[in-house]
């Protein structure tokens, strides 16, 4: 469906939210990147900046050589022009629309029959063939997450953001869904950035790791290398705790 794309992501952001200061800089070559850290570290805020849902920062965001945001050059693309998809914490499925209408929402540029075909393909891909007419309220947590994934992937984004995609789920379904997400990444090639407090998710899902603490990056690199050799004490402490 989607060919493998170069997904190099460059992020430099400084912003304030009241007393909280976010000052992060990292680069990832694509693949799956985990933003890992305790609550209040600035993970979700960073993700919202990547999506273009927050304003008033300084710095720069580049995706595959394209500038999405450059504070010094007054570039700040609105979300609809970024080509960045997002899976929200509670999925934010539109409650007044069917599953098919949710998945097709980002495809309004396509002709109706083409859109319908794409929606069927996407639902099949996330294992929900035949769910098109269902309402979000009738779905289990895991099914909702898959609909949210299909919806976010529909417009073929250049980057997929996931804000604690397993947070709202029972631990028993998490493991299966982690594998499925990884498989979805392999199949689509879409680079992903995922916010998590779970080391199990970091290990099983991510190629690259960005450790955040109190608004700052305390370690970044290939997941395996960083887990094997934390660069400093703060990072070691974060990675020593199993789940934050």
């Amino acid at each position: 469906m989607v060919s493998t794309r170069p997904g190099r992501l460059l992020v430099r952001l400084q912003t304030r939210r009241g007393a909280f200061a976010l000052d992060v800089a990292f680069e990832t070559p694509g693949g799956v990147t985990a933003l890992f850290g305790p609550s209040g570290a600035g993970k979700s805020l960073t993700l919202r900046h990547l999506a273009g849902l927050e304003r008033g920062a300084q710095g720069r965001i580049e995706l595959a050589g394209r500038t999405l945001f450059a504070g010094d050059r007054d570039i700040d693309l609105p979300p609809r022009e970024r080509g960045v998809g997002m899976v929200f914490q509670e999925y934010a499925l539109f409650p007044h629309m069917s599953v098919a209408a949710n998945v097709g929402y980002g495809l309004q540029a396509l002709a109706r029959t083409e859109r319908r075909g794409r929606v069927v393909d996407l639902l099949e891909r996330v294992g929900l063939a035949g769910y098109g007419a269902r309402r979000p309220e009738s779905l289990s947590g895991g099914e909702r997450q898959r609909v949210a994934l299909a919806r976010a992937l529909a417009p073929e984004p250049g980057l997929l953001l996931l804000d604690e995609p397993f947070g709202a789920l029972d631990f028993r379904v998490r493991r299966g869904l982690r594998r499925e997400l990884r498989a979805l990444h392999e199949a689509t090639g879409v680079p992903m950035v995922l916010v998590t407090h779970s080391l199990a998710e970091v290990r099983e899902l991510s190629d690259h790791l960005v450790l955040l603490d109190r608004g700052r990056v305390v370690g970044t690199g290939a997941t395996e290398a960083l887990l094997a050799e934390p660069p400093n004490e703060v990072a070691a402490e974060l990675l020593g705790a199993e789940d934050l």
Binding site: V84, A92, F94, Q108, R151
Partner: peptide, 27 residues
């Protein structure tokens, strides 16, 4: 209306007016 619905619609490439009529008003 939870603003997350409108934000989700923005990340799906829709403009503000379209979001108003398809998400905000119906909800």
């Amino acid at each position: 209306v939870d603003p997350a619905f409108e934000e989700a619609a923005r990340t799906l490439g829709r403009g503000e007016l379209s979001i108003w009529f398809t998400i905000t008003i119906p909800l």
